[in-house]
Each structure stands twice: as structure tokens, then as C-alpha cells.
Design a protein around this nucleic acid. Structure first.
Lengths: 254, 254
DNA sequence: CGTAAATTTGATACGTTTCAACCCTCGTGG
DNA sequence: CCACGAGGGTTGAAACGTATCAAATTTACG
């Protein structure tokens, strides 16, 4: 959804401008309602984590699923020979731990990128509760399905977009994720180093840095006066147009 | 699983050599038992497809899931601007259609790569049957979980391996998939063009061709006398060692 | 059998990585 | 208070791997 719904999201943002009271997007409602349902029908264990803490690690026995209530978490896949790859970023309402269901052991690390809270639910008790409350199962299946779609969109970007466009789309997706959750999208704080962003996008940190510099030079993004960790996005539409420009064969004024 | 279980799979193959009667691997049992359970407890619609036929297409309304009974199917993700990416290959026992659960519409195409059969089950009736037969739900969740893990392993390869190693690992994974299903792994027939393989692996067809030529020159694979569509793999261990060699920093004899 | 598609291979162009130098910020301790 | 060091970030120049373009060859198929 993230990668493909650029036009729609932009339209939704534009529509929001005229609203005096902040209206939550449909996706935002979905997330809020899902969290409410989980909270109401399950005995969750709340767990507070700080940057660098891991919710679970590869190889650990799988017993529970976790729902992100706040903060941002990265999923890191590791190969036996030491290569590692950030394969997902999870925001509020996203789930952690599905990778463990099949084998009974987790196949990647889930790490907090800043202070955040997860709600932990034993998988077996979730299944039991789902029998009484089918909506619960629907929420879980929806989360799994959405995650698969999102991962595939990420793969599409990595395989078909040049570095600059990947970085632009990354920023756009981050802003969209915030937007879905009713947060402001014009000013975003990346909780990742250039190296982490690069790993996630399949490029080196220098390439990320250069791409960001070019985006800033072209006025598509702006760095806050302080550090270069905060990014201002004057216009989300311009950002996604920038992605399209990288893809377009040649001279397309439109 | 595919990408990370190289050593184990090889060990399993070696163990099989001494057996006079063909023994099915643990994964093979899982697959056979899953198909049996589905067949016994659900009213499936069997559907025969030929190369190029699609099980479903992006945008289509989601109503059913499909289990591959024979043949190989590719999942193709499309972007609004026309880029397309093979994001998965599904073999016997794998499922098709999970991407539609979240939104009620499919987000990619599922296309037969040769003649094959899928068993189609309405999602709602599957949920009902799962209430009576929890093992059914376990099979479905296992399939989803396994697919997520496999996709992440593919992403890891694409982002961290050079072209030659990606092709070598692709062949190894293909052979492993056959092995899991009790099929011979020394002689495999790729049902994909170089362009399709390249798309799946995030490279151009010429690069695939060169990589295959190098593997053949080094004796790691052999082409059958007929076309270059059939590949013989004398030793799966040598193939995965070849992947490691590409990753190793420098001079590591062992 | 003839034609279109697929494959291989070479030469060159291009984008990203690599290596390196430098800058900035921030927390620490002399 | 400021020197200092560490980690993160930026930028340039050169090296590298893959893409692109082009041609020749083989294969598939009506």
C-alpha cells in the first residue's frame, strides 16, 4: 500500500488542509480501532523499549506476537555469513513476530529505533480469543497481508528505481505512514542514520547522503537549521513527482 | 527458509543417497500432509492453468485463496507507472492470494509459468472450516509466515550479494524447493526466460546469461545437450560454496 | 522450413561503491 | 571553559560492477 498509493494519499492530504479540526484518515481509524479491539479483548503485556532494545532476536523461540503501540521498530534479517539487511520498518498498529509462526523460531531481529511500547500477546491465547471474537482474527490477517504487500512494494522499488528515487520514495512513505496515523507530515524526524537508511534501501550511506543533498538542492526537501536528521517536506506531491521523473524515459513535460 | 537452510538441505540430500526407497524430507511431509488436510476438510475447486494464465490479477476483487497442487507460479507486482517486478515464485504446497486479504483487492498478478493446478478455496469458508478444524488455520498461518520469511531472504540476497552469487543462490533455492518436494535436484528445468530470472533477481537478462556462462565455465553447473533451459547441478554443496566465495572478504582457502 | 523469440558475447557507458579527507555536533574531562 | 575524541555526515576522485547497445547465433514454433 505504501508505495502504490501515492496519488491517493496526496489527495487525502490536500483534502485535510481545509478541515479546521484534524480529521483522522481511514487508515488511521483502522489502526485506532484495531488497537482498541486488541486492548479490549486480549490480556496484553505492555512492554516499554528504548533505542537499540530488541523485542525478539533471530533464533529465539516463538511464543508471542507483538503490536506496536508507539515508536518505530526495524526488522533485521541476518545471513549465516554475517550479512544483514533491514527488511521492514514497523509503525504504530503494525505487528511484530509473524516470521516465527512457521518454524516456531524467529528468523529475524526486531529492534526499537527509539523509545516505544509494544503490546505482547501469546500466540496461542490470541488464537483462542479469535475463536470467540472473529474480528480479532481479521485484524491479524489484515496485518499479515498488509505487511506482505508492503514488503513487495519495497522490493519493487529496490529493483526498479535508481538511488535518488528510492530515497525520495522512502521519505514519501515515511510521511505517508505518519499521515495515516494522524501525525504531521511536513516536518519529519528520521530516527535512522544514513547507514541504516542505506541498508534498508539497498545502497551505501554515501549514496543516501548524496541523494538527500540533491533533493535539498532542488528544494524538494529542506533540512532543519539544527542537525540534518530533521527533514521538512514542503510538498508531498512534488516529492512523488520527483520519483516519477526518475522513471520517465525522457522529455515528458506533461 | 530457502535462502538460509543451505547447509541443512544439502545434508538432507546426502542422507537420502543411501536410501533404496525414496524418503520424503520433513518439509516434503509437511507439504503432503497440508495438501491432504486441505483436500479432506475443504470443498476445493480444482483449476488447471497453462503457461501465461493468471490465477488472479492486481485490482481484482479478493474472495479466495489458492493452494498450488502442481506447477510453478510467479507473483508479479506492478507500479502505477508501469514498472513490474517478480516478487515471488510459488511451488507445490505454497499459497496464492494472501495479498488481497487486507484491502479486499489483489495487489499483484499470480501467473502460471507452465501447466499446473491450483485448489481454490473461498476465504470465508476457509475461516469457517478453521473454526472446526484448527489445524487448517495452522497450515494457513504457516504458509503466510513461511512466505514472509522467504521474501525477506530474497531481499537480503538482492541487497547484499553480487550478480553471480544471486544467480547461484537462485539455482540452489530452486533445487532446494524441488528437493523438499521429493523431486530430483541434480537436473532442473528452468521454466523462466533469462529476462524473467533477471527481473526476479534484480538484474538484466545479459547479466544472468553471463553469470550462468561463468558458472558453467567453472564446472559448477552444466547445460544439457539440448537447450540451455535445462541445468545440471553436479554438487549442490559446491554451488552454495560458490555463493560464500563471492561474499568472503579475501583469501579464505578452507 | 522460415520467422520471431531467446540467448550469448563483446564493447562501451553509466551509476554506485570505495576510499579518503574534512566538517560538524555533542558529551566528557582536564 | 575549552580541549578533546567519537560518531555521524558531507563531498570529491577513482575504481568497480552492472546496464546498455549492438551483433551474431541458437532455439522455438506455426
Amino acid at each position: 500500500m505504501l508505495a502504490t498509493a501515492t496519488a491517493q494519499n496526496h489527495a487525502a492530504n490536500v483534502a485535510l488542509v481545509g478541515q479546521p479540526k484534524r480529521e483522522v484518515s481511514p487508515a488511521g481509524n483502522r489502526i485506532a480501532e484495531s488497537l482498541k479491539l486488541i486492548n479490549d479483548t486480549l490480556a496484553v503485556t505492555r512492554r516499554l523499549l528504548h533505542a537499540g532494545d530488541s523485542v525478539y532476536e533471530a533464533g529465539e523461540r516463538f511464543e508471542s506476537l507483538h503490536v506496536v503501540n508507539s515508536g518505530i521498530f526495524k526488522l533485521v534479517n541476518l545471513s549465516p555469513d554475517g550479512r544483514e539487511q533491514v527488511v521492514g520498518l514497523q509503525f504504530k498498529g503494525d505487528w511484530l513476530g509473524f516470521d516465527g509462526i512457521a518454524t516456531g523460531r524467529h528468523s529475524c531481529d526486531a529492534v526499537a529505533m527509539d523509545t516505544g511500547e509494544v503490546w505482547t500477546v501469546r500466540y496461542d491465547s490470541l488464537l483462542q480469543a479469535s475463536a470467540r471474537q472473529p474480528a480479532l482474527m481479521a485484524v491479524m490477517h489484515g496485518a499479515m497481508s498488509r505487511e506482505m504487500t508492503r514488503d513487495r512494494d519495497a522490493l519493487l522499488s529496490i529493483c526498479t528505481l535508481p538511488a535518488d528515487a528510492r530515497v525520495a520514495e522512502f521519505l514519501h512513505n515515511w510521511a505517508s505512514s505518519l499521515s495515516e496515523r494522524g501525525l504531521r507530515t511536513d516536518q519529519i524526524t528520521l530516527r535512522m542514520t544514513r547507514a541504516e537508511i542505506g541498508n534498508y534501501l539497498g545502497m551505501k550511506l554515501e549514496t543516501v547522503s548524496r541523494a538527500l543533498s540533491r533533493l535539498a538542492r532542488d528544494g524538494i526537501i529542506e533540512f532543519s537549521e539544527g542537525g540534518r536528521r530533521d527533514v521538512r517536506i514542503p510538498d508531498l506531491g512534488v516529492l512523488s513527482a520527483c520519483v516519477q521523473r526518475c522513471v520517465a524515459p525522457e522529455g515528458m513535460l506533461q
